[in-house]
Design a protein around this nucleic acid. Sequence first.
RNA 1: GGGCGAAUAGCUCAGCUGGGAGAGCGCCUGCCUUACAAGCAGGAUGUCGGGGGUUCGAGCCCCUCUUCGCCCACCA
Length: 891
Amino acid sequence: MSMQLPKAYDPALIEQKWFDIWEQRGDFRADEHSGRPAYSIVIPPPNVTGVLHMGHALNNSLQDILCRWKRMSGYEVLWMPGTDHAGIATQNVVEKQLHAENLDRHELGREGFVQRVWQWREESGGQIINQLKRLGASCDWERERFTMDDGLSRAVREVFVRLYQDGLIYRDNRLINWCPRCHTALSDLEVEHEDKKGSIWHLRYPLVGSDRYLVVATTRPETMLGDSAVAVAPDDERYRDLIGATVLLPLVNREIPVIADEYVDSEFGSGAVKMTPAHDFNDFAVGKRHDLDFINVLDESGRINENGGSYQGLSTVDARSQVVADLDKLGLLEKVEDHVHAVGECYRCHAVIEPYMSKQWYVAVKPLAEQAINAVESGQTAIVPRQWEKTYFEWMNNIQDWCISRQIWWGHRIPAWFCSDCDKISVSLEDITSCEHCGSQTVEQESDVLDTWFSSALWPFSTMGWPDRTRTLETFYPTSCLVTGFDILFFWVARMMMMGLRFMDDVPFKEVYIHALVRDAQGQKMSKSKGNVIDPLTVIDEYGADAFRFTLCAFAAMGRDIRLSTERIGGYRHFVNKLWNASRFALLNLEDFDPVNIDFSSVELAPAEQWILHRYDQTAVQMNRALADYKFNDAAAVLYAFTWHEFCDWYIELSKQPLYGDDSAARHSAQMVLFTVLEGLLRLAHPILPFVTEEIWQALPGGRPNKSIMMASFPAGSGITTDQKAVADMEMLMTIVTAVRNVRGELDLPPGRKINVLLNCKDDATVTTIRAQQAAICSLARVEELVAGVDIDRPQEVATQVAGDIDVLIPLAGVIDLVEEEARLQKEIDKVQKDVDFFTRKLGNEKFVQNAPKQVLEKDRAKLAVAQDKSKTLQQSLEKIVALQRVAAES
RNA sequence: GGGCGAAUAGCUCAGCUGGGAGAGCGCCUGCCUUACAAGCAGGAUGUCGGGGGUUCGAGCCCCUCUUCGCCCACCA
């Protein structure tokens, strides 16, 4: 009936096979008509340019675990997959390609270039999708979406137009973050600040009509070309008389005023600040207040423009040294100091960002943010772990308007048209050919495209067909959960919240689970430049997807980063192999077994059998709870401990007797239990270990044509009532066996050495229980002859151990090393004496006895009694051993 | 400048509402016991970062200090 499994588990042989079958069977497909309770997750869409890294692997493993678990728990699961067009990143990739061909995008023209990007996407984009499949991701792949798809683009337009009509999208000329490498504006979030060593230059600006100087301090001397004022603090005694005076800006020879503004901190630098309103965010604000000139001295590539006079054409770096040198020559450089300050870099190309004046499109996010804050405050969306709520609120409360226009070609082109006749803007869902204000035919569409994150903000509903009111939306929106790293909490999560609430009138997800970042074994962020990257695909090749997933799951404790190393994954591969071999054992012993014959009502189960069923039930309960609480590490730990240390170490060992013996009734019930627990265990493990569990499950007797394990139910428990007494009996057996093994180990008695054991019990009931399990004890502890009784005669030479309230005596006349046994006993006595002392002291404390709850008190009293008992027994044994030694020495 | 997090066995980390400190890996000892040497059995290992406090009782709660890490922020 059942198949033989090879001796060692080889993931490569089976992973691809099962994934293909699952897809063919449509196991991942979500059916909005099934009527089952819905569970939905949208994937955080990886960039089309993306290659699977550890962050993806963790993120998607966790999502897959949740989806498989929910699917098995009776839910209609939609895991919506797709990729992001990643505007700047993708444009950069294709531009690089063009560059290698000695081309540049301007030669191709906009249309040609965009076509080229699509072509690139066809050929090499989206490889990450196949990599996700290798992980085992059970997305509904037939629904794969791309943010540039027609449907999603329609959603983008719809949102843009509506926000514009509602006055929440506007255009303004102000200072923005400009990447001189990518030639585009960026939002505040897309600028990464890094502390860098620089200098602070103190420059002398000559006062007009005087021979005095005003000294200003700056970290960017080249921007002085665009200065339009010098500001001082209004209450600064040193400069009070200079307010309203004029200085002559050196090199440029422009007369600029000295103004007073609260912004200036008189404690810092010289207390006088040069104002460059067109190239500094603070100065911009001051400039607005004082109606200063905004003099732009840079071009789009970050070079000095015609306003920089003789410096025109120089890069900022070159202009800086030239300006400083020229000022020095004129005696206007007072001093230079070292200074560390934050420099903004482009998050895509890491070029230094320039604050730059330009006309851009903005979303007024304040009203949207308000709703998004309320939704979390009111619990419509829960952020897990909760500590992230604070970060979320912090950001939402201080949110600035979002610059959404980008001066690149790859992306959703802004649906706005400029009329050259009336100068007005027409914003429209459909492309237009005439101005909606004056009817003029001379309209031209805005050349800018939208920030990539604009379309990702719509992902939870745009992927489900919005703006149409689809059945999919009706069934699966709001989504149940979003699984993501905190690095895109603002970029993505916050914006989805705002857009979802605005356009769907409901939160996009009920829960957000924020997971850790994957780092290397030293806790460093993985990066190509550091060379510490572990490639998930290499890991899968080497250890298998299951071991990899299990490792990620086991380390996904809340609120902490994951330090990953390949050794760890190797360790968990052993676990997968353990499960594999336990299954081999089972299959060997279930060859003549048919699960249709399972009927627990007709048999009396042995204590070990009841115990393992009981433990299986508890494990199922614990796993359900852990997964419901997103405690992935707990789920993994529970599964690991049960599988290895209970099912394998104890139950399988104990099952050998009935399975190999000739009591056919005992053999049959052992088979029933073995099958029941293993089969259930596989279902429990499936969300974390999808491949190996499927392979084994299919090999089990009974036959499962065309049914995948993920279509079976997730265990809630065996449903078989177990007898508490039986469970306790099994636990007693375990204590006895461990005690015997302990003596064996400590006295170096090899397993081959046969021993006899005497068990001195407190009462007849215990004796009866032991006798019933005699064979099991003998087999596990490798005991030849076992005698249990009350007040049994002790032979002279015995090794003594105490198991609960049973004295375990191992007679070893003539063979026992008395010295060694004495040492062992002494060690045991020391250990137990610590307990006795501890509890004696604790219970001797009147205040403790007065205040502690009864339960605690009783528990401690019982523990003291047990320890005292044990101590006494061991003490007596020790005395005997010492006496024996004396006798031996005398003779 | 704000905010968050971490410090527990040699290493990586668990530890729920306070009731005698745990796991995995590594280490030591003995075993090729017919599922598994990617294994089995046994064993050792901790001033839970320092100091104070609350409590009958603190890894856990409060205060404080130290050392790391991260996020946000316009001090020239």
